[in-house]
């Protein structure tokens, strides 16, 4: 149940075809949302952390390209 000023239609909108695929990744112990650009590469969309210093870290700036080692299982 929602308690929000948003109009229902906006958040129930299922039209998501233009949205890029994003995933969450643990990178150096910092959780971040990345836009997947390749099987092992992505671009940082946002950092999810309560430590304000993580946002000052230039390596974690949104738009930064990162490579990772995908694991399956």
């Amino acid at each position: 149940m929602h308690y929000s000023i948003f109009v229902d239609g906006l958040w129930l909108d299922e039209d998501t075809e233009e949205m890029a695929e994003t995933m969450e990744l643990d990178y150096n112990g910092v959780t971040m949302e990345i836009k997947v650009t390749d099987i092992n590469a992505g671009e940082i969309v946002r950092v999810i952390s309560s430590n304000p210093n993580d946002y000052l870290n230039t390596q974690y700036q949104p738009g930064t390209k990162i490579e990772f080692h995908p694991t399956f299982g």
Partner: peptide
């Protein structure tokens, strides 16, 4: 914030 889920909030 514009609000959202009651249980979460």
């Amino acid at each position: 914030t514009v609000g959202g889920d009651i249980e979460a909030g």
